[in-house]
Amino acid sequence: MTTNAPQPEVVRYTAFSDTPDGGNPAGVVLDATALDDSDMLAVAAELGYSESAFLTPSPEGLGGQEGRTYNARYFSPKAEVPFCGHATVAAAVALAERIGPGELVFSTRAGVVPVEVAQEGGTIRVTLTSVEPHIEEIADADLTEALAALDWPAADLDPAFPPRIAFAGARHLVLAAATRARLADLAYDFARLEALMHRLDLTTIQLVWRETATVFHVRDPFPVGGVVEDPATGAAAAAFGAYVREFGLVPADAELTLHQGEDLGRPGRLTVTLRAGDPRVRVSGAGTRIS
Results as ranks from 00 to 15, higher is better:
V43G: 10
G100A: 12
V227Y: 02
F75P: 04
T179V: 08
L249E: 02
V43L: 09
L30F: 09
G287M: 02
G225Q: 07
A139Q: 08
E136K: 09
D158T: 12
E145A: 15
V174W: 08
K78W: 03
T273Q: 14
A110T: 07
R210Q: 15
A146V: 14
T14Q: 10
A15T: 05
L193V: 07
A235M: 02
D158F: 08
A118S: 10
A181W: 00
R68V: 09
A44S: 14
E211D: 10
T2G: 15
P231L: 03
R171S: 11
F83N: 09
R180G: 07
G285S: 10
G23E: 01
P6V: 11
L175G: 14
N24G: 03
I165Q: 08
A96I: 07
A187R: 14
V112T: 15
A242K: 01
I138P: 08
A170G: 13
V228Y: 13
F75C: 06
G225H: 06
P251C: 08
A45W: 04
E136N: 05
Y13N: 06
A92M: 13
A178Y: 00
A252C: 00
V28H: 07
W209R: 10
T33M: 10
A45G: 11
L35K: 04
S291P: 00
Y188A: 06
T88F: 00
M197Y: 10
T204F: 08
T273V: 14
A45V: 00
F161Q: 12
G261W: 04
V117Q: 12
V29R: 07
P133W: 01
A149T: 05
G27D: 06
D185M: 12
P267S: 02
D21Y: 15
L95C: 03
I99G: 01
R171N: 14
V113D: 15
T123F: 03
Q65P: 00
